[in-house]
């Protein structure tokens, strides 16, 4: 279970070494680019960037694809929705499924729209997982969020608190997973049955696990809060950090590439003679 959360792939690549803030900025721009992209060539540019990022990071393609597994359901679902329920001009297929009642029509435009949407999701997820989890440790990420989003504090966004919450959540996930196993074993030893019976019975069987788990989580939270207070914690004010993030030359080059990327997308939208979506 642990593996599915924050799978860091240790390698000494350029992408790994990038400042998390630079990655954060890149991802925001990348997200915008995906939605701005209108021309088929601008999409190709984004795909090209995704593929070269993966190559540069030296994270195996297979691993990235494996990581995409959970979203395939969503991709397939939205593709089907788009295929069947949106209308276009050019009819590709027309099938009289139930005579005089329902005709399945697939339009060329729908097909393209569905394909593009699937592509959007896949590219976005591939890049997010590559930049945020395969090449960035959770702690780098939280640090990046905390310092990168620091300007937002001016408009009262609780950036430090958010980063602290993330850190603590990451710290306690493995602990709580262990705890769940222990409680489950304890209840099994008292004859609890989690695998038989109908839905209601199974849901009921979870009570002896969920209640102790909650009680324990609250106790832990309480003890942790006391321990943090004892270590002079009083929020983000006046707090310094041991590791100070520093933007290096490669980070600035990366940001330049980021700017070129969105500029490229916009220019291609306007000037390229490809298919417009």
């Amino acid at each position: 279970m642990e593996a599915s959360f924050g799978v860091y792939y240790e390698k000494d690549s350029v992408i790994h070494k990038l400042d998390p803030r630079a990655k954060l900025l890149f991802m925001i721009v990348f997200l915008v680019s995906i939605f701005v992209a209108k021309d088929i060539f601008s999409y190709l540019l984004l795909i090209l960037i995704t593929i070269s990022s993966i190559l540069l990071s030296r994270v195996p393609f297979t691993l990235v694809l494996k990581g995409l597994k959970p979203i395939f359901v969503i991709v397939i679902f939205t593709t089907i929705l788009n295929l069947f329920w949106t209308k276009g001009e050019t009819v590709l297929v027309s099938l009289n499924v139930i005579p005089n009642f329902w005709t399945l029509t697939i339009y060329k435009e729908s097909l393209i729209r569905a394909g593009v949407l699937a592509l959007r999701i896949i590219v976005l997820m591939a890049c997010t997982s590559l930049y945020f989890s395969y090449t960035t440790t959770p702690i780098e990420l939280t640090d990046g969020i905390e310092t990168g989003l620091a300007p937002l504090k001016k408009i009262k966004v609780p950036v430090h608190e958010f980063a602290m919450m993330m850190t603590i959540a990451l710290r306690f996930i493995p602990t709580l997973i262990d705890e769940t196993t222990k409680i489950m074993n304890a209840q099994k030893a008292r004859g609890a049955d989690f695998s038989n019976g109908g839905l209601v019975k199974r849901a009921k069987a979870l009570i002896p696990i969920i209640i102790p788990l909650f009680v324990s989580a609250f106790r832990r939270a309480d003890e942790l809060a006391t321990a943090m207070e004892c270590r002079c914690y009083r929020g983000g004010n006046g707090r310094t950090r041991m590791k100070v993030l520093k933007m290096k030359a490669r980070d600035y080059i990366f940001l330049l590439i980021t700017i070129l990327m969105i500029a490229g997308v916009v220019l291609l939208n306007i000037y390229a003679k490809g298919y417009k979506i």
């Binding site: 959770p138 702690i139 321990a227 002079c232 914690y233 041991m242 590791k243």
Partner: peptide
Amino acid sequence: NQIVATVVEEDVAFGPENLGLDP
């Protein structure tokens, strides 16, 4: 229930960081 961070040295740094010391 008293370790805050996900990396040992980051956790040890937690107290001194709260004191606002120089990195």
